[in-house]
Amino acid sequence: MVIGAGGQIGRPVVQALARDGWAVTAASRGGARDAAWDEGVRSVRLDRADGTALAAVVGDGCDLLVDVVAYDAGHARQVTGLAGRIGSAVVISSVSVYEDGAGRGFDTMGEPDGFPDYPVPVPETQPTVAPGEATYSSRKAALERELLARGAGLPVTVLRAGAVHGPYSPLPRELYFVRRNLDGRRDRVLAYRGESRFHPASARNIAELVRLAAARPGSRVLNACDGQAPTVAGIGAAIDAVMGVETRTAHLDGPPAGSVGQTPWSVPRPVVCDMSAAERELGYRPVVSYAESLPETVEWLTGVLHGRDWREAFPLLAQAYPDLFDYAAEDAWRTA
């Protein structure tokens, strides 16, 4: 059973498991089906917040429960409460749970000198934020702690995903370059010399990790990212290549000047995760590189944007980055 099957990660997870021979029940709020799914996939409607409904869908039991949308300790307790009916589970968490040696993490990024100084790469043994209810990161930390507290009673693989990318994303960072190219903007500005690295995670690679963990149940925490972490300048060049355009890039040596130079990957220090544990424990090899994944992402974004305002199409991205396309500020910066 896959909870959250209709979303960015859930769709390829269902496809990967079905292809591997699993009889899959795809549960989502709308009960949607993906055209790529095998005909044998059963789709059902499920409100993730309704524990009674979740228990009813699980029914007499399932060999594997994959929870793509679990968010906090309450969701974890819903899963662990079904331990007698579940063979094993795979649950998606986030690399945002990590903090550095000075107590800095994703929650302190907006503070002066609040950006974390992580080791490169970040192993799963890196300290995490205190579990709680206040923030996304603390809720994910609480989710992890509650799940893993069951020990051998319910084997759970927790996958800490990086900057997830691919079709159906509610927060498509690639839009930064795609929309500029569609708008004919051939000049761009990148902060931190375009060298920022924020480890991406293809939804298809996450699905591969789910598939591998499903075949080897156990209680573990693993990073879930692509094989490489390209720079923001490299991401822009790769998207340009897919779209067949040539651009010119100016660089800021330091942080953005207001909105100028700011991208969804622009960070003053690298966030790169160690994937060796997944390779060692599961035999993980990425099924797609970042560059190889881009054509379908660009095609999907282009289709969604057609005739629509980007803020209407992607409200979550607009909320996180309201000035992502401040062309007037960029033009003023160039002529200053």
Rank of each mutant, 00 (worst) to 15 (best):
V79L: 11
E279Q: 13
Y327N: 11
P131R: 11
G162W: 03
Y192A: 03
G110Y: 07
Y168I: 10
W265M: 12
T157G: 08
Q8P: 02
D113A: 14
R11P: 13
A329C: 01
S289Q: 03
P155A: 11
M1P: 07
E279H: 09
D100K: 14
G10V: 06
A26E: 08
R45I: 08
S219H: 05
I206A: 02
G87R: 13
A5Y: 06
Y192P: 00
S293E: 09
G6A: 12
V178N: 13
S137A: 14
L252M: 05
D226P: 10
P131L: 08
A257E: 12
W265F: 10
L316F: 08
Q8M: 05
L305W: 03
Q319D: 06
A23N: 11
A329V: 04
A213P: 07
A320W: 10
F198L: 13
Q319S: 08
P167C: 14
D331C: 06
L147R: 07
E246N: 08
E133D: 13
D187I: 08
R173T: 01
Q15W: 04
M109T: 12
G61D: 07
L301A: 13
V91W: 04
R308E: 02
M1E: 08
D63R: 14
W37P: 01
R188T: 05
P172Y: 03
K140H: 02
R77F: 00
L190E: 04
G254D: 09
S169Y: 06
R45C: 12
D72F: 07
I92C: 12
M109D: 02
V79K: 13
P112S: 15
G236K: 11
N205H: 04
G81Q: 09
V41C: 06
R104E: 01
A26L: 08
S94A: 11
G166N: 08
Y321C: 10
T249Y: 02
R211W: 00
L282T: 10
V242T: 00
S169C: 05
P217H: 04
V288Q: 01
E208K: 03
V122P: 01
E296Q: 15
D20R: 15
Q15T: 13
G59E: 04
A130L: 08
R220L: 04
H165I: 11
P322F: 07
T249V: 10
A161M: 05
L175C: 11
A215W: 06
Y290K: 15
S137L: 02
Y168R: 15
A328T: 04
R248Y: 02
S88E: 02
R33L: 05
A224F: 11
D100N: 12
T249E: 02
A55R: 13
S93A: 15
S93R: 15
D323L: 11
F314C: 05
L317G: 09
A49R: 15
P230E: 03
S138P: 00
D226C: 06
D67K: 14
Y176F: 14
P217L: 01
A134Q: 09
P200L: 14
L324N: 01
V210E: 00
